[in-house]
């Protein structure tokens, strides 16, 4: 009963929280994807493959760092509010994207690249026509796991004042109001599942024919 009454009385707040939650996710993901793929392209340039290998081990290891730790560190250095939360989200989401994009690009068959070069494809043609499409499935799965982590972390980021559905949960915890916790957690879960479903579809769409 309380569950429904809270829903009705606070529908504005809930709607705002959902929008804010989703915006935090979208903005930070957009940044992470653009920056992450750009970084991966830079560190996997021909002749610099060693750099890529190093970044690969660093990002591989840092995937083990818990999100709360990153958020706490950002709080220490930047402070509280929506912007620091976004910074924390971008940093944390970058890691799987860079890891996957780098390993995807580095694992493109050297024979294919050599043939491409020998046939007279320029550096950028090799990157955009060969490397990126062939690494696409791996890049996309990096984006998907990054998104899953990101949407979970958005909820946690409420502790440094990000807002969103996490706020409703924390308030519920503080005031000991289970209906708020249910609503916050339930909606956050639904958004996470929706995001994952959409990305699964996108992943299938961008996998080039012939690779399946």
């Amino acid at each position: 009963m309380e569950f429904f009454s809270y829903f009705v009385t606070h529908s504005d707040l809930i709607a705002d929280s959902i929008i804010r939650h989703f915006l935090l996710f979208l903005i930070s993901m957009a940044f992470a994807i653009v920056v992450g793929i750009f970084l991966s392209i830079v560190i996997t340039r021909e002749g610099h493959e060693k750099v890529g290998q190093v970044i690969l081990s660093i990002t591989g290891a840092s995937q083990a760092v818990p999100s709360v730790a990153v958020i706490a560190l950002v709080f220490l250095f930047i402070g509280i509010g929506m912007k620091p939360a976004l910074v924390a989200l971008v940093i944390y989401s970058l890691v799987p994207i860079v890891f996957n994009a780098t390993s995807g690009i580095l694992s493109v068959d050297p024979g294919v690249l050599e043939a491409a070069k020998g046939m007279g494809l320029t550096k950028s043609q090799r990157l955009w026509h060969i490397k990126i499409p062939l690494a696409m499935p791996v890049i996309m799965s990096g984006i998907r796991s990054s998104a899953t982590i990101n949407i979970g972390t958005v909820t946690v980021a409420a502790i440094i004042g990000a807002g969103g559905l996490g706020d409703i949960i924390y308030t519920g915890l503080k005031l000991n109001r289970p209906e708020m916790i249910f609503i916050g957690a339930g909606l956050a879960a639904i958004i996470a599942i929706l995001v994952d479903t959409v990305l699964m579809y996108v992943e299938r769409k961008v996998t080039p024919k012939g690779l399946a």
């Binding site: 024979g111 690249l113 050599e114 043939a115 020998g118 062939l134 024919k209 012939g210």
Partner: peptide, 13 residues
């Protein structure tokens, strides 16, 4: 140019 691994582009028909 033809190499042993052939190097056909797997994502091209």
């Amino acid at each position: 140019y033809v190499i042993q691994e052939i190097g056909l582009f797997p994502h091209y028909s």
